[in-house]
Nucleic acid binder design. Structure first.
Lengths: 236, 236
DNA sequence: ACCTGAACACCGTTCAAGT
DNA sequence: ACCTGAACACCGTTCAAGT
């Protein structure tokens, strides 16, 4: 991809042979460095100054390629959704397609939690997102929904998937950085909640610690897709 | 509540009559000011310096009452969940209870989007949260679920409700501040997506702009609670 | 054409000093 | 006991100046 023959990238005049000057900035190189920085040190490490240092440039140089820090974030958002969608093929049933895509979105968010937490609510409205939308809506139309119902279900599924994935990413980032064992603290304190004041809570507390995040996500998707299937049969 | 007779709040010695020195800092007064600041100017306006100015104090004075900015956020998080839960009474059916509480959580988040966006993933693990958990779990046990299933369903409902509410809050904040008409831009660009490349998307695009956020939330909750009800009947 | 360096107007947190 | 003020180590963005 980078050596696409009709790539418009201007080849610096000084690079006659040997490796090109490694400090040549491009949008792609800047996004690579930003992603690496996020991965290494978490969401608040992404600053223009740190980024400039990693790139071997002045911290203001990247502003020639992006309108500002926010613009970098938008570029990263498109990468995240692209990672979730690219290469995905519809499954044998509409249900497999929907569940599969939801899992891919979640996996991409958990693979880059520091990124997901920064950009999950920033829809990119670009290519990768449209491809994902087209896949989901195609599966719903395939299942038999009329356009209006397909649109409603699409938004329900996408909202729940994205919201839950970014929510999980947020606590993954917290666990890693600020909070010591947030997840464990959560379990401990729920177990310690006063049984007199919160009797229902106390009676199921041991089970709250049980299921892990993967199971919970699968469970929510199962509930949702069951409901969708029921609506399909019941003359929705 | 504030004039609880056995309140441990130290009454400043100098306050003999007339109004007490209005600059006396307390945790409550600091949280009030922080909330007002968030409401007025959005999430990034909450800085210790701005807060100090609003309180008529040096910006470092609040650090005598909170361990740091993060500690203030945690205090605000507890207020948010308290607002959602306080005064809530279980409905006539378990389903009404669950839907009602979900709506209250969402409404609190949308009433304070700048706050919700900062703290939604920071569970407070304190009183108000336990009360909410107890209500939801109580409704599920009431419905007939065994403890283990009640715990699974509780987490599914709470995760979806919180995640969607904070997700919506995030875009409400964006709409208000950074992005011009983000919601409208979304509709416009989805309508403009290439029908050749994204045929399914194009065929339902007019309907995507239709349903508003309130309807979508109700729809998701309906799907979820339908699925829960089905599990109950089907020998889950 | 591309990058640098200084400057500007901000941050959160620490800590010695005031009253 | 409570607060201030200066200092420290950071931010993002602008803009004139260099090469």
């Amino acid at each position: 991809m980078t050596d696409d023959p009709d790539s418009p990238a201007p080849r610096p005049a000084g690079a006659r042979r040997g490796r090109p000057p490694s400090n040549a900035l491009t949008r792609e190189r800047i996004l690579d460095a930003a992603l690496a920085l996020l991965e290494r040190e978490g969401p608040e490490a992404l600053t223009l100054r740190r980024l400039g240092a990693d790139l071997g440039s002045n911290h203001t140089a990247v502003l020639r390629y992006f309108a500002g820090k926010d613009d970098i974030l938008l570029g990263l958002a498109e990468r995240l959704i692209a990672e979730a969608v690219e290469g995905f093929e519809p499954g044998p049933t509409w249900r497999a397609t929907l569940a599969g895509l939801a899992r891919r979105v979640r996996r991409a968010c958990l693979a880059h939690p520091a990124l997901a937490v920064l950009v999950a609510s920033r829809v990119s409205r670009r290519d990768a997102e449209f491809r994902g939308a087209d896949l989901v809506i195609g599966a719903l139309l395939d299942a038999g929904f009329a356009p209006r119902e397909a649109a409603r279900h699409y938004r329900a599924l996408v909202d729940v998937t994205l919201a839950m994935s970014s929510f999980e990413a947020a606590s993954a980032v917290l666990d890693g950085a600020d909070r010591e064992g947030d997840r464990m603290a959560w379990r401990r304190e729920y177990l310690a909640a006063s049984p007199r004041r919160f009797p229902h809570l106390a009676s199921v507390a041991p089970h709250l610690a049980g299921a892990d995040e993967d199971d919970q996500f699968e469970f929510v998707m199962e509930l949702l897709l069951n409901a969708v299937e029921t609506r399909l049969g019941g003359g929705a």
